[in-house]
Design a binder for these strands. Structure first.
Length: 850
RNA sequence: GCCGGAGUGGCGGAACUGGCAGACGCGCACGACUCAAACUCGUGUACCCGCAAGGGUAUGAGGGUUCAAGUCCCUCCUUCGGCACCA
């Protein structure tokens, strides 16, 4: 028996599988399809342990599905546009394209070392013109559908990355850039947006999706649907008049959004956001100076200062008044920076008695507090003296026709009331914003739009796609797109009038590229359309999608939006692109901190593969933590999986009979029966765990089975039919986890030999078809073999475990109960008393109560 | 503040309809092999009392439901994510 040397067998089999096209996924209508997808990597230049942690269990799962008769496609590619390559260009003067393709080449090798079942023919690279041509094409489709638009607005800008960011890419309390952690600033810029909000409601529907609740909750919170009403308040024109003459033109209606229309009678003032367009109109000449000063101060403040929730509320009175439409009350109009222009209508009605923010504001500025809901469990409230706002649950008071009803009923009644009276209507608001996709950078897909002085913005004609990136560009960190500084690139002919025009010089957010990569994998070189409809009809939707949870509110919302928008254009079909989603956790450094170069706690998978082999690294990554949780790395733990694979090698191949082993002829039936029982029990567990993505217990079950088999081998099982069956099934279960050693042992034990007819067909050893273990079916559980013939029943007395009795599987309840009561230990703890009650749970437990 | 996840030996974790807590592995201890060490193999390993048999205590804390709770319910604590003046 030779030694287990993964460094020899792994490259050998990788080359063989590649040469045989073993993992090619082609349309085959005779088999059910399974599209397995893992989030495509960014070509940073090195595959890190996180990639391995995400990808190897996904590969194992795909292999399991393959062995279960599915025609499985597992594609791979690169999300290869993006900032790091461009920043390196600025720093080191290396062209982003050159650097990116070098990195891709390096990572291809690293990916191959995993021994995963990628179909490399389907590789897609998003920075390749044959890919981004279609990214641009999709932009145009969205534009023509009215789902892409250009707007001047205050947007988040990362001063370090020198580009604008989508709202989803701004994180944390200090509002920092998702990529470089620099706090963002606000800039007024004309930018392109996608109308994600048009699909807000549909994105909240997860029907038929096998996604983790965690992700659904994150998305639901992010979309932030609120149900309420819009109510319009009229501004009083002549502020000194006692007759309250109303301005009748619509421009002097202030519309607010409220989730509590039932509290309308308690609105004692209004607040406009300082940026609200009606501020100037409402403000009286005496208050103009003060209002202007406040507006200027609010504009200067960063969002971070402004949005700090614990900051004391500030604001100024505009001098203007509005009429509360439900009771005719004259209420003052203020401006305050706690009201955001970006949510709702940018204006609120303030109900200090039942909203803490409004309450603090009212007390600070001496505004009336008017109670309209009396909570049932509190003494009668007095607006003038109450120390804090009270929750808006209870019975309506001081609320006209609603008085006396419960607040819950009043919610609907109020909407009906304002609708009938004509000054409001039911309304729904979302926190979700439209997706800002413009980036002032070079290394991205150019936005295929042309601006003409006469004809405005128009898309580049389809025949002229792709709009190629120029290669001769100077990279300077200016905050402007390098494309803008290029001497000629932006010059273009207007597609409408043919006159002189200019290209859009911004490029697209790379999340645009990754919103449809699963479609490009279907046919990466197809040049008639973004994908070949034949491939689409067979493979889509994605059956299993795996990746990190950090994309819950970014990629996973974008790609769902994209699919739905395309569906409405007739390009895709079905409600969702990815039916099943599973998230892996994160591998932390040995110091329990997030891995980073600066902490020096990064684990390099290349070194591990070199030292232990890919099979051991794969097995360890599946074994060492719950996949969905992740855990800190433990460098000595991998020794356990290395030992396990070596013992597997020895168990299967070592036929040395000179040891103390019992000869096969003397092997007892009992040994064989136990071997088969344990084998099929483990098979059952492993099958279940693969279905449920519980990879850690798959490996531990295999370890247990190895221990059982080693015992059986010592007892003479080696060489018996039961032994051969056990080896056969063991290797098949091992194949998805550690594909190389499984294949090698399959081969060495002659299981890959062609049988009968195949063998006769060719005497040439090389041409003989080899029957790879990876083309074998998953074994079937023999339930009879797995069944125990005796069971051990724990016996409790007064809830404490006192004994275990062994009974035949078919023992009756009476037999088991009397055996339990006959036990010495049980008798001892019953202390001679008669049992009050004996509970028997079938096959599980006897519980005696005295 | 709100929403979600997680707290089990020295460590990673297991326990899948409430039914034997600690599977499997790491580490550690002892033994075999060895001149020796490493490797490998074997045995042991939650904690406390006990030579042992045995007994007691344990799943973040405290209550509850139950014959029986890591698992269900209530009140907290710690920790990790996300959101955060969202009207």
């Amino acid at each position: 028996m030779s030694d287990y040397i993964p460094q020899e067998i792994e490259p050998k089999w990788q080359a063989k599988w590649d040469a045989d096209g073993l993992y090619h996924a082609d349309i085959d209508e005779s088999r059910p399809k399974h599209y397995a997808l893992t989030m495509l990597p960014y070509p940073s230049g090195d595959l890190h342990i996180g990639h391995w942690y995400a990808m190897t269990p996904s590969d194992a799962r795909a292999r399991f599905m393959r062995m279960n008769g599915y025609n499985v496609m597992l594609p791979i590619g690169f999300d290869s546009f993006g900032l790091p390559a461009e920043n390196a260009a600025i720093r080191e003067g290396i062209h982003p394209m050159k650097r990116t393709y070098e990195n891709i080449e390096r990572m291809r090798g690293q990916l191959r070392s995993m021994g995963a079942m990628w179909d490399w023919r389907r590789e897609a690279v998003s920075c390749d013109p044959e890919y981004y041509k279609w990214t641009q094409w999709f932009f145009i489709q969205l534009y023509q559908r009215g789902l892409a638009y250009r707007k001047m607005s205050p947007v988040d800008f990362c001063p370090h990355c020198n580009t604008t960011l989508a709202r989803e890419q701004v994180w944390g309390e200090d509002r920092h850039c998702e990529r470089c952690e620099t706090p963002v600033i606000k800039k007024d810029l004309a930018q392109w947006f996608f109308k994600t909000t048009a699909y807000a409601d549909e994105l909240l529907n997860y029907e038929g999706m096998d996604w983790p609740d965690r992700v659904k909750v994150l998305q639901t919170n992010w979309i932030g649907r609120s149900v309420g009403a819009e109510v319009s308040f009229q501004v009083i024109s002549d502020q000194s008049s006692v007759t309250n003459k109303l301005i009748t033109d619509n421009c002097s209606l202030i519309t607010v959004f409220t989730t509590r229309p039932d509290t309308l009678w308690g609105a004692t003032f209004m607040v406009l956001s300082p940026e609200h367009p009606l501020v100037d109109k409402v403000t009286t000449p005496e208050h103009k100076a003060e209002v202007e000063a406040y507006k200027a101060q609010a504009a200067r403040q960063s969002d971070i200062d402004r949005e700090a929730a614990d900051k004391e509320k500030t604001g100024v009175f505009t001098g203007g008044y509005a009429i509360n439409p439900v009771n005719g009350g004259k209420i003052p109009v203020w401006i305050a920076d706690y009201v955001l222009m970006t949510y709702g209508t940018g204006a609120i009605m303030a109900v200090p008695a039942h909203d803490q923010r409004d309450f603090e504001f009212a007390r600070k500025y001496g505004i009336e507090v008017r109670v309209v809901i009396q909570p049932d469990d509190m003494d009668a409230l007095d607006g003038a003296t109450m120390p804090a706002s009270v929750p808006a649950h209870g019975t309506m008071v001081n609320s006209g026709p609603l008085t006396g009803t419960s607040a819950d009923e009043a919610f609907h009644a109020a909407i009906k009331y304002v609708t009938e009276k004509g000054f409001g209507k039911g309304s729904i608001n979302y926190k979700l914003r439209d997706w800002l996709i413009s980036r002032q950078r070079y290394w991205g897909a150019p936005i295929p739009m042309i601006h003409c002085e006469k004809c405005g913005w128009n898309p580049v004609p389809e025949a002229e796609l792709p709009v190629l990136l120029p290669e001769d560009v100077a990279w300077k960190p200016t905050g402007e797109s390098p494309l803008k500084l290029h001497p000629t690139w932006k010059q273009a002919k207007c597609p409408v009038c043919g006159g002189e025009a200019e290209r859009e010089t911004d490029t697209m957010d790379t999340f645009m590229c990754s919103s449809w990569y699963h479609l490009r994998y279907l046919s990466p070189h197809y040049d008639q359309a973004p994908f070949d409809p034949k491939e689409y009809n067979y493979w889509m939707p994605v059956d299993t999608y795996t990746g990190g949870i950090e994309h819950a509110n970014m990629h996973l919302i974008y790609t769902r939006f994209f699919h739905k928008a395309l569906r409405d254009m007739g390009i895709t079909e079905g409600p969702e692109p990815m039916m099943q989603l599973r998230n892996q956790g994160m591998v932390l450094g040995e110091d329990h901190e997030k891995m980073s170069k600066s902490r020096g706690n990064v684990v390099a998978p290349d070194e591990l593969v070199e030292r232990y082999g890919a099979d051991a690294v794969r097995a360890y990554l599946m074994f060492f933590a719950r996949w969905d949780m992740g855990a800190p790395w433990n460098s000595s733990g991998i020794d356990g999986t290395v030992r396990w694979l070596r013992r597997t090698w020895t168990m299967v191949l070592d036929s040395d009979d000179s040891s103390r082993r019992t000869p096969a002829a003397n092997c007892s039936d009992e040994t064989k029966r136990i071997l088969r029982r344990r084998l099929h029990q483990m098979l059952k567990r492993v099958t279940r765990d693969f279905k449920q993505f519980e990879f850690n217990t798959i490996v531990s079950s295999l370890m247990e089975l190895l221990n059982e088999m080693t015992k059986a081998k010592e007892a003479g099982a080696y060489g018996t039919p039961e032994w051969n069956e056990a080896v056969d099934i063991y290797l098949r279960m091992l194949a998805p986890v550690s594909p190389h050693i499984a294949e090698e042992l399959w081969y060495r034990t002659g299981r890959g030999e062609p049988s009968g007819k195949d063998k006769a067909a060719s005497s040439n050893d090389k041409a003989r078809p080899y029957k790879s273990i990876h083309n074998q079916p998953w074994p079937a559980v023999d339930e009879d073999a797995a069944r125990e013939d005796e069971i051990v029943i724990p016996v409790q007395v007064n809830g404490k475990l006192r004994d275990r009795i062994t009974v035949a599987l078919d023992a009756t309840e009476e037999q088991i109960q009397s055996a339990a009561l006959a036990s010495d230990a049980v008798k001892k703890f019953m202390e001679g008393k008669a049992p009050k009650k004996v509970i028997y749970v079938k096959g599980k437990m006897v519980s005696v109560v005295v």
